[in-house]
Nucleic acid binder design. Structure first.
Lengths: 192, 192
DNA sequence: CGCGACGTTGATTTGCCTCAACGATTGTGG
DNA sequence: CCACAATCGTTGAGGCAAATCAACGTCGCG
């Protein structure tokens, strides 16, 4: 199961047996049942999670009580509250499980220790953070330049797995529209 | 002038004289006049730029010819097309100077060489990429959860320097609204 | 001086939201 | 394993934030 994590790193470069042990030694497994929280708004985030199975989301609850989903994380993805974990301030986000999930947890403390013991891992996180940055920039620009129907089409094309396994109202929340409006968009699309 | 760059790094840790020389040796100065391009849509981005003076922007031009600004970069900020530079594919963004500007250029090639010669610099870029990620996540969530008038207020509070020195129509394009609508918002705000 | 870019203002339109009502599906305690 | 509640997706009527289009004054600059 944890092989998924090692394989993910080895997409970028190979690790010696020692480096694998060091990396796995500083992480630990955690299971989360559907609806269980990994991080609650107001806490200081202490860890990042690598998803081995299942699905998590991070989201912001606005002053009117509406949820806005920042990220879904399925197998092979990392999830955390980047703002809280880097500045060690109270989180504005919640992170919870959409399905029963298995995670590999890396605390910030262990992550920083890992960087000292194994500089390759600093390279690994530099690379995946760059990728994450590129993706979210693309998403922001899509949100600014495309109507909702096109954003939905792009999402189903780019991440069909997510659209399949996540309830429609959460997809709406990720796209930045209401569930009612997404329902109407889907109705339209069915007639094309 | 390049001291600004060294100081920026030394916000996170001190560099030896040798490390400073290595870092500066792999960068070079460049001047850009107002409206000159650093990167044009369709090219593959070859470098990142650290702004020593002036102001740049990165933006996307949609199919209707409208510009959407992803980022402003004033002194002490980095700017690049993260998608293009990490995947070495054609850029969707343009980057140009809003004012006459002085830059420190770091090509991707030199950046990767720098990481090998000076691992601290890999740490530096890991850290500032994390920060950039946290910021853009906050911006995306603001775009989804707040009305335009509140986003404008937040921007003037968080980055007064940018709002001062950048033409109003570019601020509108950054906020994701039309110049006409921003003008109306400002009119309203003047009466509060 | 004259011209083009910028900001403003008003009238009209539209993409998406709100609210409400209703079946269908899911989950849960007895 | 059923009964009932809760959640989910759908549909429709009406409303609002922001866009569109157009006209106009101002200013910086060649």
């Amino acid at each position: 199961m944890t092989q998924l994590f090692i394989d993910n790193i080895q997409k970028y470069f190979t690790l010696s047996e020692e480096e694998k042990e060091t990396s796995l030694g500083l992480t630990h497994l955690k299971k989360l049942r559907k609806k269980e929280l990994l991080l609650q708004e107001g806490e200081v985030s202490k860890c990042s999670a690598f998803v081995l199975s299942g699905c998590l989301r991070s989201y912001f609850v606005d002053t009117n009580g509406f949820e806005h989903i920042l990220q879904f994380a399925i197998e092979d993805w990392w999830i955390t509250d980047m703002m809280s974990i880097t500045t060690q301030t109270a989180a504005n986000l919640n992170i919870d499980a959409i399905q029963d999930s298995e995670l590999l947890i890396l605390t910030r403390e262990n992550q920083l220790e890992l960087f000292e013991k194994c500089p390759k891992m600093e390279k690994y996180f530099r690379i995946i953070t760059e990728k994450g940055m590129a993706n979210i920039q693309t998403r922001l620009l899509e949100n600014m330049s495309l109507p909702a129907v096109q954003r939905y089409k792009n999402l189903t094309k780019k991440y069909p797995k997510i659209v399949e396994k996540v309830p429609q109202k959460l997809i709406a929340s990720f796209l930045g529209i209401t569930p009612e409006f997404l329902s109407k968009l889907r109705h339209q699309l069915a007639y094309e």
